[in-house]
Design a protein around this nucleic acid. Structure first.
Lengths: 194, 194
DNA sequence: TTGTTAAGCGGAGAGGTTCTCCATATCCTA
DNA sequence: TAGGATATGGAGAACCTCTCCGCTTAACAA
């Protein structure tokens, strides 16, 4: 909750803090049901607050998302640290990439919204912190695989993560092909062992 | 223009045909400027017709897109046929995949809209024909690479194309990194030679 | 306890979108 | 040229996002 998560501002009035929590809960519920295309209006309504309140707490969709996925991101980084002691560096990397992809598909539309948000000057900050945390974890695993002799030297972790996210996005578009994500990741990791 | 393109219906009244052409031209212009998030209202306005007319000719965004990209798809298939005589099967496949990706990024948002449309029962038909045509061209090239001994046997062309489209989508999200697409495709094709 | 005040609230409203409906206008054929 | 089939357009319904600002209320000092 502390490394990458969207921290609430310095000090919040008690009622404001309650509303913020209500909003996060409502958003999580609504996103789970509708994907990130859920209406922000409806989230405010579900939380029992006015639209203005939502927009004051979370000026953009990305800010809301960042607050929501912060914990997941921290968990992902912890998993990465654990995997550093895994006996097989190749498998460690593969397992972690899979975890990244699964996280990305936690809510329908998450990947796309994140990618879009990273491009948007207004909102890049909130999500960029999450991204950086993940990249840092990934670079360690990739380095280890490289020194182990299996991964090629010229692979950029940012590119690799981008491709993994893209695969997650694609698998999200085909919800009735549950095995697609695994097949796409296999295609990708095959390249790493080349 | 004949294989996969969105053919106009059987017989069209002369004025209707004119309007249809106006709409396609306006859509192409608007999509080029704004990406596929362009407002359909504005397209109708630009074409000088009412919104109702647009929706009668193209009930959905996907139908409009299918009519627009039909020619591109045919060109892609022709390129595929040409590449069948290329001396190096590996390179032929790589070149063709690159062409597929470039086609997919011709208009911002094209890939995402297509992918989404393929999932939508109302609109799957129009674009599925395009997809099938491309897949047919790809399977020939992949087969050839496989018999040449380079591509692994278990690769599904549909998965490969999905991954290539996903890469195209990702590179579209990062418009200021012009080389990203090439790097992602390199990552993918490295896996094919594994 | 009570008064002051800044923080926070909510919802109407501006301006955008998609998509439908059907009275009207236009083409085409006999 | 007349009449029926076909196509039109734009107002309107129902959504969306995001802003503004008068009102409410928590928090703190006296």
């Amino acid at each position: 909750m502390t490394t990458a998560g969207g921290r609430p501002p310095r000090r919040l009035r008690a009622d404001a803090r309650d509303n913020r929590d209500q909003l996060l809960a409502a958003a999580r519920a609504e996103f789970t049901e509708q994907g990130t295309h859920a209406s922000l209006n409806k989230i405010a309504q579900r939380a029992g607050v006015g639209a203005g309140t939502l927009y004051r707490h979370f000026p953009t969709l990305a800010a809301l998302l960042a607050a929501l996925i912060g914990d997941d991101v921290d968990a992902l980084c912890a998993t990465g640290r654990d995997l550093m002691t895994h006996p097989d560096p190749d498998e460690a990397l593969a397992v972690w990439l899979h975890a990244v992809a699964v996280h990305a598909t936690a809510m329908r539309g998450l990947v796309a919204t994140q990618m879009a948000a990273l491009r948007d000057r207004r909102t890049a900050g909130a999500l960029a912190a999450c991204h950086d945390a993940i990249r840092a974890a990934g670079v360690a695993l990739l380095d280890r695989a490289h020194h182990h002799g299996s991964a090629p030297a010229h692979v950029d972790i940012a590119d690799l993560l981008t491709l993994v996210n893209a695969a997650a996005w694609a698998s999200e578009q085909a919800p009735d092909d549950a095995a697609l994500l695994a097949r796409l990741l296999a295609l990708i990791t095959a390249g790493l062992r080349a």
